[in-house]
Write a protein that binds this DNA or RNA. Structure first.
Lengths: 270, 270
DNA sequence: AGGACATGACGTACATCGTAAGGAGGCAGA
DNA sequence: TCTGCCTCCTTACGATGTACGTCATGTCCT
């Protein structure tokens, strides 16, 4: 009397080979899913057949996150953008976290190998790395939300970028730990300034249909007013200054220069 | 024939005064809630009566967020920590966003007026402001998540901090726009480096019960391995370096010094 | 004194989220 | 034709934020 290889129920039909037997196709499918663990092998994709694929799903998810922000990146949203039902996505990813990991990987890998390595000494190389990171956060603001809320995305392409950034310090005679610290500083400055853009964009989205400047025009004076006119003279002096979002490139440029100046002093004395 | 002041239905009983009349207690309550708009006036609280209060709720929410992170800050969680049902909280806040605003306000206001203003020139003042911001993000890692995902929290205490920070540049002869840019640079560096801590902590929480170092020990070599041993020599050299989390104070100190050095050069030539 | 209003705690209900569990059926090889 | 591999699907669950309405208190005016 043979039994089902998964649920143990007795089988009416005796098995003919030495393969496992299942009491139903459901039991068989479930055993299959348990067997293949987390890593999905996209077979159809290799054969170039139509239908879903990890890459297609990731591209769609990135497009949604770019346009509407991370908060509207729901599995249902992605699925419906692909004309597919939600649970179909789970044939390609273990869950939303893995999808986001792959989104990060895809974005950081984009253009990774393009162009020759920058020449011109550590300063030019570092500046190039910083500008590249800056532009990625500009194009994909959700990246910083992921970094801030979810995890340090230890994806290969990010490690590659990191490695290239560390390489800027080659030949300066610094020890690895110091190199690491310095590069984290430059990268931190970029990320911190990029946060300005992210939060401004998020604020704009939150304001409903109104533009950012309209939103600011409403709330900022209200806050100032509530606290007394003369209490914040320095910020009041900024009322007619360019909007932070409009001034962002200038802010980035001037502060990157300052940081690199400081670094120059450091490597000279070291 | 009088009508309900809210829903317009005809009333059977004619009104006797000139007050608005309502067709039911529900209509009256709803009109009341609409009338008091967003700002809630906590009357009981003033009288020192027991029960809920905005401040108590905010304190509880901050405690939860400090301990378990922003993602486990749910209204139900806060309510149950207070021994209260969920909807009771909505008598004190328009919604979760307002609660979070007040959490930010409370945290930034804490210790705002303590101590005399720092003397010792712009550099000492800036450094003090940066260190203070750094410590706040250390104590309340969820703050950066709020900044990154939700909104620029234009709460009064934050504006006050900002104003004080801008004040460090007083007397240097810089124009307001430049001052603004420079301060955003220092603050950006602090926030960017603080992101390191936030993401490390989030990663640790994500790993379930295991500690951060255990998690790293598992995943980081796995990533390295998958990509070939010699492909990331500079990061491989860091394998035995102190953990980022352990090294964070050093990373902050050295990079703040570098940034301030760069700033010194800037203000001298300006 | 009596009734209208202010205030706050609560129950119910709903849409949306991630995703676990399992079923239906196309496909390829035996 | 059968069997296992693989994909897509339906159903369902628990958690979330919160709209709406109800009830029980106070408080105050007449």
């Amino acid at each position: 009397m043979a039994t089902c290889a998964r649920c143990g129920k007795e089988l009416v039909l005796p098995g003919r080979g030495r393969r496992p037997l299942y009491c139903s196709r459901s039991c068989q499918a479930r055993a299959y899913r348990a067997r293949r663990s987390v890593v999905v092998t996209p077979v159809r994709e290799q054969r170039g057949e139509a239908g879903l694929s990890r890459e297609l799903i990731v591209r769609t998810a990135v497009r949604i996150a770019d346009a509407d922000g991370l908060e509207s990146l729901s599995m249902r949203h992605v699925a419906s953008a692909l004309g597919v039902k939600v649970m179909s996505l789970y044939n390609y990813f273990a869950g939303k976290e893995e999808l986001i990991d792959l989104m990060v990987e895809a974005v950081f890998a984009d253009g990774l190998d393009s162009g020759p390595p920058i020449r011109g000494g550590w300063r030019a190389e570092l500046e190039a790395a910083a500008r590249w990171e800056w532009e990625i956060y500009s194009a994909h603001p959700w990246l910083l939300e992921v970094i801030a809320t979810v995890r340090p995305p230890l994806v290969p392409s990010l490690l590659a970028r990191f490695e290239r950034g560390l390489g800027a310090f080659d030949g300066l005679g610094l020890d690895p730990v110091t190199t690491h610290r310095l590069y984290l500083g430059v990268s931190g400055l970029v990320q911190g300034l990029a946060l300005l853009r992210v939060s401004e964009i998020a604020a704009g989205r939150r304001g409903g249909g109104i533009s950012l400047s309209q939103w600011r025009a409403v709330t900022v004076p209200a806050v100032y007013e509530k606290l007394g006119a003369g209490r914040y003279p320095r910020q009041s002096a900024l009322r007619d200054s360019p909007d932070v979002l409009a001034d962002l490139e200038e802010i980035f440029t001037i502060n990157l220069r300052i940081m690199l100046d400081g670094l120059a002093g450091f490597v000279e004395t070291a």
